[in-house]
């Protein structure tokens, strides 16, 4: 039971991150490595502000804004300075390492007894053990619905078409570069929010917590979009969040089967490769049916 709840909690926290990767990688077609820096950025801001007594919800808001800013810098480097997409992300990610260090002032920190978003709400006794998962699920649901709604707006339509067909956006009289910058801002705002939630749940900040964010998010996106593609009534965004939960379950299973926690990154890589394999197998069987 506690293991299951742990998986769900992680799935919810990192699911928000995966939604960000869904925007940059799937919708914009942009392999954005900034996220390895924006996840700890959100955590750093949360840690620094919470310990200074700022309202924990306001901390989340600040993390969102900072993430959006970082994403827009990657976008500007790519669009205005014509730096390759991958390199733009790596540059910002690298810079963020120092910035994150500055924000917190040390490589890791424990929040101790500081108030977090989980502490401010009164729960009935029966629900008290589930307080984390309840709050996290409400937040992830809220973010998901907001994102779904956004993707149905005119602005959201433009975002979807820019990754699909940049030329179309030009013929509509819009600057595709601007649309991409907006998309990267939203993506990194979500990743940063995810980092901020992680920090308040784990009550700690760790400068290296962002390593592998991109790979993890991508795996969840691929699991989510391939596994649940067949289910008509289910939104892609729901699939992505479920993808992250499945992913976390796999990791937990791997660790509890005797691997050390330092092996996680290797498990992450292997799991990612397995996901890619699954993806190509599913695609092949589908393509075969289409051709038949």
């Amino acid at each position: 039971m506690p293991i299951l709840i742990g998986i769900l909690e992680q799935g919810a926290i990192y699911g928000i991150m995966a939604l960000g990767i869904y925007i940059s990688y799937k919708i914009l077609n942009f392999p954005d490595l900034t996220v390895d820096g924006t996840f700890p950025l959100g955590a750093a801001i949360s840690a620094a502000l919470v310990t200074r007594g700022v309202n924990p919800w306001v901390c989340l808001l600040c993390a969102i804004i900072a993430g959006a800013l970082a994403g827009s810098i990657t976008g500007i480097l790519h669009i205005k300075c014509k730096i390759k997409d991958l390199l733009s992300g790596i540059l910002v990610m690298t810079g963020l390492y120092s910035i994150n260090y500055r924000i917190v002032g040390m490589p890791n920190m424990f929040l101790m007894q500081k108030p977090t978003i989980f502490g401010g709400i009164r729960f009935p006794k029966a629900l008290f053990p589930f307080r984390y998962i309840i709050v996290l699920f409400v937040i992830v649901l809220f973010v998901k619905i907001l994102l779904d709604l956004y993707l149905r707006t005119k602005s959201g339509f433009l975002l979807k078409s820019v990754g699909d067909n940049e030329g179309l956006v030009v013929t509509l009289g819009k600057n595709p570069g601007t649309v991409k910058i907006i998309g990267l801002s939203i993506a990194n705002a979500l990743v940063s929010l995810s980092g901020a939630l992680y920090c308040q749940r784990a009550m700690q900040f760790d400068i290296s917590s962002g390593t592998g964010t991109m790979v993890m998010g991508l795996a969840a996106v691929i699991i989510g979009t391939t596994l649940f593609r067949k289910i008509r009534f289910m939104n892609v965004t729901t699939g992505v969040i479920l993808g992250m939960i499945i992913y976390k379950a796999c990791i937990t299973a791997a660790i509890s089967s005797g691997l050390r926690s330092s092996d996680t990154k290797l498990v992450v890589t292997v799991l990612f490769l397995l996901t890619m394999l699954l993806n190509s197998v599913m695609n092949k069987s589908e393509g075969g049916r289409k051709n038949a």
Binding site: F157, K160, D164, L172
Partner: peptide, 27 residues
């Protein structure tokens, strides 16, 4: 000429809005 992952209806709505703002109203 079209956005392949979007439906015909979505594509036509997108084109119909040319010259106006692509804001947060319904797509």
């Amino acid at each position: 000429g079209t956005s392949p992952s979007m439906t015909i209806m979505e594509n036509m709505s997108l084109a119909d809005n040319k010259g106006k703002r692509y804001d947060l109203t319904k797509g």
